[in-house]
Design a protein around this nucleic acid. Structure first.
Length: 804
DNA sequence: ATACCTCGAGTTCG
DNA sequence: CTCGAGGTAT
């Protein structure tokens, strides 16, 4: 590169070199210069062009941004319409390939029959999730680019397309047709999309919803400078109008030609033979879908030979020689019609989006959770919005984002209603919590129903046949209000209820019209309820639906106390010492049993024959830890969580030392301060504080004395012989994942728990081992990652057998 | 105080 | 499965 060259020579040379680098980067995917060097060349060219405006050129690789379009885009009629492809969907839940790919198989068979060919050849390529465009080249120069529009008329977005580096402004070589229309897809690489959004977030600008929207939105910018700032990419996948004889005989060869001319072609394109070939290709691309640097929504198959394409022709507007085989979509856009409030068992008010039905990942989605009011505010979801719905990870649909461009005018931010939609009670949000709750409690039918449903559910009392519909009817016809009412039901009650429900709904079942009465279901239900009368303590505790008490905590309480009555009457100060129980949980339990209406329901249950079959002795280590010192410590924690303060300035160590020095509470109240101070090393001023707060008829004195009596009662119930052999898996945490052939997960869990193991839900480094069945997923991966032992089903069975 | 680790609770569709 | 929050270990 000579220093002496004139500006126009240097400009020519730079343009040539930069174009070559663009080609190597975008088409060959083999860059030969570092980004910095490329940028330097580009800057030099830009400087020269600015300095010598007379040497400017529309197809300079600087892609100097064109003028802003004020009035929108000109309409462009496509000389040859841009086709839409027939879509085929994989039938999920089908093992047989012929059924899974029924539409694809039909397509291939139709092609075979029409052509009289045995194994037709298809050009196969991924279907990029972007925006289809058409580029027009005249004498090798880019003259115009347009969106697909409705297929026959699109919008002229030439100025924006000129800023896309992957689109050549001049074709390479010299054997191109005088007029060439290239069809292809504008898209955004995932990586570029993420980087762009990260940058936008930093600059406080609006982020793009997803790569597809990013590509489409960027092209429709009136100001090309905005397009230029977006990381757009392009792949060509076909041609529009060309004169006969100017192209090869096959589509796949045309793509190679386009590549020679400098147009980027997706490297995944291939030729597939017959049905087996196209299915294999679909699988191949599906398998590397996540590894591809861009989003795709399927693959496209086109009959490769143009001659054969002509024979097949068109149906309506879709070619009979091409088919798009779609992957199950992971994200879709749809309209949000309304936001409903659901009231859960605990009164939690959960907003739910009611959506225009849309296919996502193989199912039709009509509802999606919005979690809570904060989430709605964060997304700024409004009624009437177009939203993007995703089935994340597994199954549960969620609203990911609002498409602001499509927001109808006149919308307002959504607000949580003031009253419960079911019982009209005030909705309140406890301080520091994210959820709003209906304050109606059991008065609220929604909460009552949910409480009943929970009571009857499989993991609680497991009342077979008592489902949501039946509970709805029972509550609405005022047959049942609380779980206790279930145990008073008779077959006659149920039949009467059914009759009234049918009457109310105006439905008369076939059996009634025939003058018969179907009563089997009612007999079964009464029997199912009766079967739950002998109940297990932990399940019953869980079934009561105490806030914060799930299965695990219920088990922990059951094990620690051994007897229902001792839990129901326990002070929070005792509860706090049970494993996994802290101040919040302890308060929740104590409050529940302090409520008169809860006690009434429980009494009624016992009166109607419910009894606990597995009550036993309390857990020795739990009871032993509950000495006077621990009671004082617990009292201090309980007081603090109530927002108060007890034994201010006296630490836990000091409290324990004092209790130890004074034997018990009574001793602590009577003993000589000086002597105690000497014996324990706790300052007499601290002892005074403790004693002042435990003064006669102070509430805490009453309470702690009662608590001490409760502990004493537990002590008396401790097992006399300590021969209770240690369980083989005591203290070990294990995790189950995947499907076991020989037993259900619940059964495996019970058997492991019977050996003393704790069966947790997630894997951590504290997990002793993971049992991995068939189709184990992320938990197995995590176990491997953390180096946790993994047992297969055979090893589990062996372990269970070894320990009886 | 902080960093895990678990649990509780709510969730959709067929 | 995910989120939030409670509990415990450090």
């Amino acid at each position: 590169m000579s220093e002496a060259s004139s500006p126009d020579q240097r400009i020519d040379e730079l343009r040539r070199v930069i174009s070559e680098h663009d080609y190597r980067y975008h088409v060959l995917d083999q860059p030969t210069v570092a980004d910095a060097e490329y940028d330097r060349l580009l800057r030099e060219l830009l400087a020269l062009e600015t300095e010598h405006p007379e040497l400017a050129s529309a197809d300079s690789p600087t892609r100097t941004v064109g003028a802003r379009a004020d009035t929108g885009f000109a309409q462009v009629e496509h000389e040859l319409p841009m086709l839409s492809l027939a879509n085929a969907f994989e039938q999920v839940d089908q093992d047989d390939d012929d059924l899974r790919f029924a539409e694809l198989a039909d397509f291939v068979r139709r092609v075979e029959r029409s052509l009289g060919v045995d194994t037709p050849e298809f050009s196969a390529e991924p279907k990029l999730d972007g925006l289809a465009i058409s580029l027009r080249y005249e004498d090798g120069r880019f003259v115009r680019g347009a969106t697909r529009g409705d297929g026959s008329t699109g919008e002229d977005v030439s100025a924006n397309l000129r800023t896309v580096r992957a689109i050549p402004l001049r074709l390479r070589g010299d054997d191109w047709p005088a007029v060439l229309e290239v069809r292809g897809e504008i898209y955004m690489r995932r990586e570029d999309f993420l980087a762009f959004n990260a940058g936008a977030l930093e600059r406080g600008e609006r982020t793009l919803a997803n790569p597809r929207n990013g590509a489409a939105g960027s092209l429709r910018q009136l100001d090309p400078a905005v397009s230029a700032s977006r990381p757009l990419a392009f792949y060509a996948y076909g041609v529009g109008v060309v004169r006969a004889g100017e192209l090869p005989e096959r589509h796949s060869q045309t793509l190679l030609k386009l590549r020679e001319w400098g147009l980027p072609i997706c490297p995944e394109v291939a030729v597939a033979n017959g049905l087996d070939g196209v299915i294999a290709y679909y699988r191949h691309i599906g398998g590397k879908r996540d590894a591809l640097p861009y989003d795709i929504d399927g693959v496209v198959f086109k009959v490769d030979r143009y001659r054969q394409q002509e024979t097949l022709g068109f149906v309506a507007r879709a070619p009979r020689w091409a088919l798009a085989q779609k992957f199950p979509a992971q994200e879709e856009m749809t309209r949000l019609h309304a936001i409903d409030i659901r009231i859960g068992r605990t009164g939690a008010a959960t907003p739910t989006a009611r959506l225009e039905p849309v296919h996502v990942a193989g199912v039709t989605v009509t509802n999606a959770t919005l979690h809570n009011a904060d989430q709605i505010a964060r997304l700024d979801v409004r009624i009437g919005d177009t939203v993007i719905v995703r089935r994340a990870g597994d199954v549960i649909p969620e609203v990911v984002q609002v498409v602001l461009e499509q927001r109808p005018p006149g919308t307002e931010p959504w607000r949580m209603p003031e009253r419960c939609p079911v019982c009209q009670s005030q909705l309140v949000r406890p301080e520091g919590e994210a959820v709003w709750r209906c304050s109606g409690g059991l008065y609220c039918p929604a909460q009552g129903k949910e409480a009943l449903f929970h009571f009857a559910s499989r993991r609680a009392m497991d009342i077979d046949g008592l489902g949501e519909r039946l509970i709805d009817q029972m509550v609405e016809l005022e047959l049942v209000r609380t779980p206790a009412d279930l145990y008073a039901l008779t077959v006659a009650d149920l039949l009467e209820m059914k009759r009234r429900a049918d009457e109310r709904d105006g439905t008369t079942p076939e059996t009634v019209r025939q003058g018969r009465v179907a009563s089997k279901w009612a007999e079964n239900l009464v029997a199912a309820i009766d079967a739950t009368r002998p109940a297990r303590l932990a399940r019953f505790l869980f079934a009561l639906g105490i806030l914060q008490i799930g299965e695990e905590t219920a088990k922990s309480l059951a094990r620690a106390f051994g007897r229902f009555q001792d839990i129901a009457s326990a002070d929070a100060v005792l509860l706090l010492s049970a494993p996994e129980v802290g101040p919040k949980v302890a308060a929740s339990v104590a409050t529940f049993f302090a409520q008169a209406h809860n006690r009434e329901v429980i009494d009624a249950l016992f009166q109607r024959g419910l009894h606990l079959v597995d009550e036993g002795a309390p857990d020795p280590s739990f009871v032993q830890a509950l000495d006077t010192g621990q009671l004082l410590v617990n009292a201090k924690r309980v007081a603090r969580s109530d927002g108060g303060e007890l034994f201010r300035g006296v630490g836990e160590e000091s409290l324990k030392a004092l209790a130890a020095g004074a034997d018990d509470l009574t001793g602590l109240l009577c003993v000589d301060v000086e002597a105690l101070a000497n014996a324990t090393g706790v300052s007499s001023s601290r002892i005074d504080i403790v004693r002042a707060e435990l003064a006669a008829d102070s509430p805490w004195q009453q309470r702690l004395l009662a608590a001490q009596a409760q502990v004493q009662a537990l002590r008396e119930r401790l097992p006399t012989d300590d021969a209770a052999a240690a369980l083989p898996l005591a203290g070990q945490t294990v995790v189950l994942t995947g499907t076991l052939a020989s037993m259900g997960r619940d059964q495996a869990r019970e058997r492991l728990e019977a050996l003393g193991a704790k069966v947790a839900r997630s894997v951590s480094k504290k997990t002793r081992f993971v049992v991995a069945g068939e189709a184990a997923g992320s938990k197995l991966a995590r176990a491997t990652e953390l180096g946790v032992d993994v047992l297969d089903e055979a090893a589990l069975l062996e372990l269970l057998a070894r320990h009886g």
